Lab assay of single mutants.
Amino acid sequence: SASLEDVKTAVLGLLVILQTKLYTLPASHATRVYEMLVSHIQLHYKHSYTLPIASSIRLQAFDFLLLLRADSLHRLGLPNKDGVVRFSPYCVCDYMEPERGSEKKTSGPLSPPTGPPGPAPAGPAVRLGSVPYSLLFRVLLQCLKQESDWKVLKLVLGRLPESLRYKVLIFTSPCSVDQLCSALCSMLSGPKTLERLRGAPEGF
């Protein structure tokens, strides 16, 4: 439990870093931090981490990651405290083949985003970082199938509809809506759902 406290501190630090690096160059920093966060949550489900502190780590990670939004130009952003989304000039939600690297070039400044813009690109060529939603999407499927803490599952179920409104997140990387529907149906009809959940409301 003591070591998990250190892990929790590290994860919180990564969330803060991602919130900053999403809007700064090099964009590969945001890509790497995002991948680290998603990989860490995957390990929770792989090794069945069920301690309360592990659940709190997942809760905080999902609470942040499910706020990711994308505009029509595929640029990622996060809402501010007033709910207004600021889109990044440097990070996009497109999935890119590994051989192309985590970044790609664009020939010049991008068109203005639909929300308040981030800082304008400084040079004639900007390297865009790929932060594909499919990585998070796979972890969300694991959550629906394996999550043991009701608070975490409730958060994910509550945030998913709003995330799905931003269709560009889903359609720019390999996210299977069929698998999502299947996971939701299995969660509702499967007898093991109630068996594994802690803290579920009576009558769920």
Rank of each mutant, 00 (worst) to 15 (best):
V33C: 09
V131D: 03
S163V: 15
A54R: 01
R159L: 06
S28C: 12
K151M: 12
L15S: 14
A200C: 14
G129I: 06
A2I: 08
K151N: 10
N80Y: 07
Q19I: 02
M36Q: 05
T50M: 09
D178E: 15
S189K: 09
P201S: 09
Q179L: 09
C143W: 01
S111T: 12
L164Q: 01
V177T: 06
Q42W: 10
S72D: 08
L144I: 15
N80P: 04
D6C: 07
L135G: 15
K81E: 15
S173C: 02
K8T: 07
C91Q: 08
R58M: 01
S39A: 10
W150F: 05
V11T: 09
S56H: 11
M187S: 03
S189G: 08
V84R: 12
E195G: 09
L68I: 13
A10D: 01
L136P: 04
S182A: 14
C181N: 03
T20Q: 13
L110G: 14
L76Y: 06
T106L: 13
L153Q: 01
L188M: 12
T114F: 15
P174W: 04
Y166Q: 10
V85S: 07
E162D: 10
L155R: 09
V16Q: 15
I41D: 00
M187V: 07
V177P: 06
L43N: 12
K21M: 01
L180A: 02
S102K: 09
R32G: 02
F87W: 08
L197I: 12
R86C: 07
C93P: 04
V139M: 07
S55G: 12
I170Q: 04
T172S: 10
L128A: 14
I17W: 01
G13W: 00
P116H: 15
P174L: 03
R165K: 12
E103Q: 12
E35Y: 11
C91D: 03
K8C: 07
H74W: 03
D94Y: 05
S134E: 05
T9Q: 11
N80M: 09
L194R: 06
R58E: 00
L78W: 07
Y34R: 02
W150T: 02
G190N: 14
S39F: 08
S55W: 03
E195L: 10
E99F: 14
S55E: 12
L169Y: 03
Q19Y: 05
S55D: 15
K105C: 14
T114R: 13
S189A: 13
S182R: 08
R196M: 06
G118A: 13
H47R: 14
F204K: 03
L180S: 02
F204E: 03
P26A: 04
S189V: 10
A10H: 00
S88C: 02
V84E: 12
L188V: 08
K81W: 12
V152W: 00
H29A: 05
A183I: 11
D178M: 05
Y45P: 00
T114V: 15
A27G: 09
E162K: 07
S186G: 15
Y23S: 04
K104F: 11
P161L: 06
S39N: 13
H74F: 04
S3K: 11
L164C: 02
V33L: 07
V92F: 10
T31L: 10
L184R: 00
P132F: 02
C91R: 03
G77K: 02
S55N: 10
V177C: 07
A200Y: 14
S182K: 08
L164G: 01
H29D: 08
G129C: 10
R86Q: 09
Y90M: 06
A70V: 08
C143G: 03
K21D: 01
